[in-house]
Amino acid sequence: MIRHVAHDLYQLGESETGKDGWCEAVRVYVLLNDGCPLIFDAGSHIHRGPIMKDLVELLGETAPGYVFLTHTELPHTGNLSAISKTWPEAKFVISSAILPHVEMPWWVKGEQIQYGHAGSSETYGNRRISFSDAILKDQPGTHWMFDEKTGVLFTADAFGYLFPQTADQKFDDELEDGIPAEWSRRYHESAFRFLPMVSGEKVSADLRRVFAARDVKIIAPTHGNAVRGNINRFIDRVSLAMQGICQ
């Protein structure tokens, strides 16, 4: 399903319902970027049909210039081959800490890959994207990316949340009281199994440093919907969730 988030940012991707009724989203984001669309993550292979249909509909005649990968696990790279077959000229942008020969599909050629270095920024079709270390991640070599024009921070697995079916495709400002801390707690507890071994205060302090360093207007997590309404309330609730999971 295509959802317009804000400016030229769109959200695609489906979700899966778990045994207990809680859903997990696997999103793909697109910045239309006037003639050189930028795709962030490639979504799950099990959602290939709807994702490719939505991408073709959203992009129309314009081929994407770049596919940025937050990291290389299957739910984030599941449609790289479909995207590459449809638009062979699209380049892949990955973290400089990713080793393509063990972490990218075997058919990806060296010349298709560009690297993003944490602490640097680069222009892609006139759009400046900056790269930083993913602070909360489940794979070394995960990076976060920031679009300076719209203030979107792409956060990979961090800041996801599980939700009841009724909240699928709903942004935080379309829910009566935003995203509850409980939804964030459920997700982070299952996604980051190391959290019970660490200090929640230290995690929250590190996450806050990220938001102190740039003016984030939208958080774009892979496993949740874009957060575009009340960012501060959302971050406070994620911190609360961390206190519940961590020490």
Binding site: A97, D133, L136, K137, P140, F192, V198, K202, D206, Q247
Partner: peptide
């Protein structure tokens, strides 16, 4: 430190 960056938030005695 690179493989398990979350250890920066852990307690050395506990680990």
């Amino acid at each position: 430190c690179v493989v398990f960056p979350w250890l920066r938030w852990a307690d050395p005695d506990q680990i």
